[in-house]
Amino acid sequence: MPVAVCSLKWELAVPGTGQQRISYDSDGYHLVRFPYDRSGESTDPWRMHDPGRGGEGASAFPDPRSGLIWPSHNGWGVLSAMVIWEADTRPTEYRARFVRDPLGQATGYDSTGTTDSARTGGRQFRTYTWQFFVKKGTPVGLKVTARGTGDQRLAVPITLAEFKLAIHTDVLLP
């Protein structure tokens, strides 16, 4: 079965990337951004993370469009992510969700695969997986939030994030 893939990585430790400023959208989540550099672990042979997509001019990391993967094909999408948060005692909960069209540029915001977990000691290490049909022309994104008591959104820095999409392009139909 043919598979088209896009694998993105952002890491604070990489010189020149800077800290990813956590800012919450109207839905209370932060769209995680990724550099357009395809070196290191990031790979994008189908150019699904293209700075020219989704706007009139070129996007530049860390603007919101740098958080989008534009599926190259219609098919069954397997999304996976990893996020490492700095140690912080204020959050009581960490959440993540995968979103179709997180910036409302194509078919409209559609979140799915939301998960939450309680804080553990030290840094927070989280992995996520979700599957759904993806469509060429409708971007997908990874959104996260750290919440304290009373649903308070906290700007806890992340130190590493990965976001991957594998599209199974040969889905059998009855």
Rank of each mutant, 00 (worst) to 15 (best):
W85S: 01
T169C: 10
T115G: 03
A87G: 07
I84D: 00
T149N: 14
P51V: 04
R53Q: 12
A118Q: 14
G67H: 00
T169R: 09
G28C: 09
T129A: 11
R47F: 13
Y109T: 04
R119Y: 07
T43Q: 15
S111H: 06
Y29Q: 06
G104S: 12
W10H: 05
P15H: 04
F163D: 05
A155K: 14
D44K: 08
P15E: 08
K9R: 10
R21M: 13
H49G: 08
F125Q: 09
S26T: 07
D101Q: 10
V83G: 01
K9P: 06
T17Q: 09
A96E: 00
P2G: 08
T159Y: 10
D88C: 02
K9E: 14
V32F: 03
Y29I: 03
F163L: 08
G55V: 03
S26P: 08
P62A: 06
G141T: 09
G77P: 00
E86Q: 04
T138D: 14
E86M: 05
W10D: 07
F132C: 13
A96K: 00
A161P: 10
A166D: 10
K136C: 11
A161M: 13
P91K: 02
D44L: 15
T169M: 08
L31K: 03
A4Y: 04
M48A: 05
V14C: 06
A58T: 06
E162N: 13
L173M: 14
V83H: 00
V156S: 05
R95F: 11
G141V: 08
D37M: 15
L160F: 15
A87L: 07
M82G: 04
E93R: 02
S59V: 00
T138E: 09
R33T: 08
